[in-house]
């Protein structure tokens, strides 16, 4: 039943996030003709979708929504006055941590999947096509990178009091990571640049429509594996801090 609590605490944020993402993706597909007509140079549909959804506007919103999903937790419950009730339940703090993290990861993955479900489905209505397998590749990128972003906010929610400070710290943390990834020791190792990886720039979608029917270049599985590991470590650290913390 911990799942029930975790779902209750996050479903409104999740539902709003899902609606916002679907609305944004729908708008991108709906407005494709107007935007492409006013582009400086000819823009293929695949490139347009990548630019608008997977590289910029919708992606930025996805990152912000994932950060919002990461907020909450036992420390935040203290402000709501429910921490006493939660901690008096016969469950360990590790169980509380894992239940919330798992619920968050599932929600992040579902959000990542939404563009892959909507865009291929909607495109034929506007005389275009976008293959599901390609969209699914981007969803995998979003899900893995989203897990790290979620876990970062999750971690800060355990460390920092206040409703908004974990979100601000997460945004700052992502910017710092992005800057660090461009420094000489890390340059050339795309795995270190999460914001670059999540764009999926290496996928051949940007080069036109020749390979749209199949998977493009293989996904950066090593980087994605590393991100998953980092996300799990952040959740583990959050669990350890929660288990040690006093709740006066």
């Amino acid at each position: 039943m911990l799942w029930y609590k975790m779902w209750w605490e996050s479903w409104i944020r999740f539902a709003i996030s899902a609606v916002a993402l679907l609305w944004m993706c729908g708008a991108v597909v709906l407005l494709q003709q107007q935007v492409r007509a006013h582009a400086d140079e000819p823009l293929s549909y695949a490139h347009y979708i990548w630019s608008a959804v997977y590289k910029a506007n919708v992606l930025d919103m996805y990152i912000l929504l994932v950060i919002v999903l990461g907020l909450g937790g036992v420390l935040q419950e203290r402000a709501q006055g429910t921490v006493g009730f939660t901690l008096s339940l016969p469950v360990s703090r590790w169980q509380l941590t894992y239940a919330r993290a798992t619920m968050g990861f599932v929600q992040v993955a579902i959000l990542a999947l939404l563009p892959a479900l909507l865009i291929p489905l909607l495109s034929p209505f506007f005389g275009e096509s976008f293959p599901f397998v390609r969209a699914l590749q981007f969803s995998v990128l979003w899900a893995a990178c989203g897990m790290v972003i979620f876990a970062l906010t999750f971690f800060f929610s355990v460390v920092l009091p206040g409703a908004y400070s974990p979100a601000i710290a997460s945004v700052a943390g992502l910017i710092v990571c992005s800057v660090l990834a461009k420094l000489p020791p890390f340059q050339g190792h795309s795995a270190f640049d999460l914001l670059e990886t999540i764009h999926g720039a290496q996928l051949s979608t940007v080069h036109g429509e020749t390979s749209l029917a199949a998977f493009a270049v293989p996904l950066p599985w090593l980087s994605l594996g590393l991100y998953t590991l980092v996300a799990l470590c952040l959740v583990g650290a959050a669990g350890s801090i929660t288990a040690q913390r006093d709740f006066s």
Binding site: M1, G81, T82, F85, V91
Partner: peptide, 27 residues
């Protein structure tokens, strides 16, 4: 044991029935 805190902080977003069902599941 059972504990009733000073502020009686219970999950405000649940209904009475939801909270009873939720708590019952642990015991």
């Amino acid at each position: 044991i059972a504990y009733v805190g000073e502020d009686k902080g219970l999950y405000g977003y649940m209904t009475v029935a939801d909270l009873i069902r939720f708590t019952r599941s642990f015991y």
